[in-house]
Each structure stands twice: as C-alpha cells, then as structure tokens.
Design a binder for these strands. Structure first.
Length: 238
DNA sequence: GTTGAGCGTT
C-alpha cells in the first residue's frame, strides 16, 4: 500500500508534506520512498489513486520529518527524471490555510519553492527558465484527468446528496429515447433515399411490394409523427 | 496495453 502501515494521515503536525507531480502512473510509493529518503527522513509516502480504477493519479505526497530536509529534497529532486519522467517536487498544501503550515516555518523555508511553483496560475508561462518543461506542457489537454478528477471530487463532496443519476425509473425513459432514435434512423433512411448511392439504402426496392410510393415518401411513419419534425430533415429551419 | 499538468488517505 501507499501507506507505511498507517490507516490514516500520519502526524502531519510535525511533518512536512511534499507534493510530487509528473510522476509516471506506474511509479509507486516504494519507488519514491528510497529516492526521497536519501535526502532526509521520510515519514510517509502517499500516492492518491483513482477510486474506480485504482490507478495512480500521477502525483504523490512525500512527508518529511524536517522542513529543511524536505526543502533539500525539493531542490534536489525537483526536475529529476524518475522512471523516464521528469517529476516535480514542491511543498504540498492541504488547504487554503496551508500557507502557514508548521507555524509559518515552511513559508520561510519554502520561499524559494513558493515563488517558483506555489502560484497555481493557469498560465505559468515561465518558471525559472524551464523551457523544456514548458514545451512538455504544450501537451496540456483537459480530457480524462480533469473529468476523472472532478468526478472523484464530486463523489467526495456530493456524498451527502444522492449522486446516483442512474438507478430507477431510468429504463422507461431510455427505452423511449431509444424508440425515438429508431424513428430517427428510419427518417434518415428515408432521407437517404434521396441519394441512391447512400449506404443507408440497402436496395432500391424494399420487401414491401407496393413500396414504390408515388410521392416518394416511404417514411409514412415519419410524417404522422408531429414531434419528429426535425429528425426528418435538418433541425435548422430553412 | 493506456492517459497527464496536477494537491491527499482516517
């Protein structure tokens, strides 16, 4: 486990938490522990993982016994390549008040680290001359991580409220929706009749002998459906 | 087999 036999958060009152970012999803606490322990007394290493998949989230928390050691580790391990990935080590903050953690002792010691990455600006632009880092950041794309993270967070915050969107009385709605989709498909099919080459139309003649409608509208099911006004054609009224 | 730009567990 990520914890060293601890069930909950260790004595953070006398420990300094470091946030390790940009670690590979395969990096485990056991891999980080020796690395960080070399620079100081590591009391705990914790790697948050996804609730659903259980995979690492790409960052870890390393707790040092002394702030000076933590600072040293930050200075030494920050930007270090671990498992083929450049990790980012910085003092972690548990909350908005984390700025004054450890009686402000950290604040004074982390003045350097703070100025370089504490500000979580949406566009850091330049760090301290880490152009390479900036280049990597070019990959920034909010796709899975964001949604996953938010989803997870919602699970925590919204635990009080029923966050079970799909539970009961959902089948009928879905079934109806599906039925509508079927209609739409039919409509589309009829629409594709306009293009004989369209893959939608399997063959010019259907199973119905008298399918050849003079009006050319085989979608007799579509017309009667007043609610299917749009499905037949583009929603945009010409 | 996997993603990424991000702050945590009782």
């Amino acid at each position: 486990m990520s914890h060293f036999g601890r069930s909950g958060p260790p004595d953070i009152r006398d420990t300094f938490s470091l946030l390790v970012l940009n670690i590979t999803f395969r990096t485990t606490a056991d891999d980080l522990f020796p690395l960080f322990d070399k620079y100081g007394k590591v009391v705990d290493v914790f790697i948050p993982r996804d609730r659903r998949t259980g995979e690492s989230r790409g960052f870890a928390f390393v707790r040092y016994k002394y702030g000076e050691e933590a600072q040293k580790a930050v200075d030494r391990l920050d930007g270090r390549v671990v498992d083929g990935r450049e990790i980012m080590v910085q003092f972690a903050k548990y909350g908005p008040n984390a700025e004054r953690i450890q009686n402000g002792r950290i604040v004074e010691s982390t003045s350097k680290a703070k100025s370089r990455s504490r500000s979580r600006s949406p566009r850091p632009r330049y760090r301290d001359g880490y152009k390479d880092r900036d280049r990597d950041r070019d990959y920034r794309r909010r796709s899975r991580s964001r949604s996953r993270d938010r989803y997870d967070r919602d699970g925590y915050r919204g635990r009080d409220r029923d966050y079970h969107p799909r539970s009961v009385s959902y089948s009928p709605d879905r079934r109806k929706d599906r039925g509508r989709v079927h209609d739409e498909e039919r409509c589309s099919q009829s629409q594709s009749y306009g293009s004989p080459n369209s893959p939608r139309s399997p063959s010019p003649h259907r199973a119905h002998p008298r399918d050849g409608s003079p009006n050319g509208h085989i979608d007799n099911k579509c017309s009667p459906n007043s609610k299917s006004v749009s499905p037949c054609n583009e929603p945009a009224d010409s």
